[in-house]
Design a protein around this nucleic acid. Sequence first.
DNA 1: CGTGTAAGGAATTCTGACACG
DNA 2: CGTGTAAGGAATTCTGACACG
Lengths: 114, 114
Amino acid sequence: MDKQERSYKDKKVISIGTVSELTGLSLRQIRYYEERKLIAPFRNDHGTRKYSFNDIETLMDIADKREDGVQTTEILKEMRLQERKRERESKDDIKKKMLQGQLNAQFRNRRGQL
Amino acid sequence: MDKQERSYKDKKVISIGTVSELTGLSLRQIRYYEERKLIAPFRNDHGTRKYSFNDIETLMDIADKREDGVQTTEILKEMRLQERKRERESKDDIKKKMLQGQLNAQFRNRRGQL
DNA sequence: CGTGTAAGGAATTCTGACACG
DNA sequence: CGTGTAAGGAATTCTGACACG
């Protein structure tokens, strides 16, 4: 996913009625999940909520878990765990790339010595 | 761009007020360009227009051309030319892939004969 | 806890039209 | 041709609250 596409996914431009249609959740449910800190829509000048496609995906995950009887507090914890996991993986990825870069450099050096 | 990301770009979910903010165009202008067939927003049950990120990009292109004094009729022609060009390129791409496939098959055959 | 609902107000969007140039 | 604007109506969204379980 390049920068441009990311921006589509993260841009908060969708109003709550459309989100409701897309997710099958009621307005009440969507607003309640915000109250429980599960999502954070953007508020424009007037105070109208605007959601991203990312928010919609999160809401669909929430809907699945709620159907399985998971409470919002639990869902919040799970989401935070997931978040930390992604951060770790992202860091590991950077480390891996740096290591690879060093190996490549060594390889070039040895080849030069032959 | 994979299917998922395409769907974000093409999904018509943004209302005209937000499009106006994002493009800097007035509601009147956006509706007028639709009247001139330059864009085709989705209409929901109530009749409210819904735009995609793609529509927004098109509108920004239109805005640039209008600033250069290009009339909507001309812009429409240009857009249709562009569309045909993209179609040709897409077809050429398929042909190229088929040809490559045949070459690969021949190569495998000859190698087998050795 | 999670969700429905009625309440009143404010902002959005729609269409058709008149205006200007 | 392209755009602004006032007009009247319909649908959207917001918040705080009461209800149920």
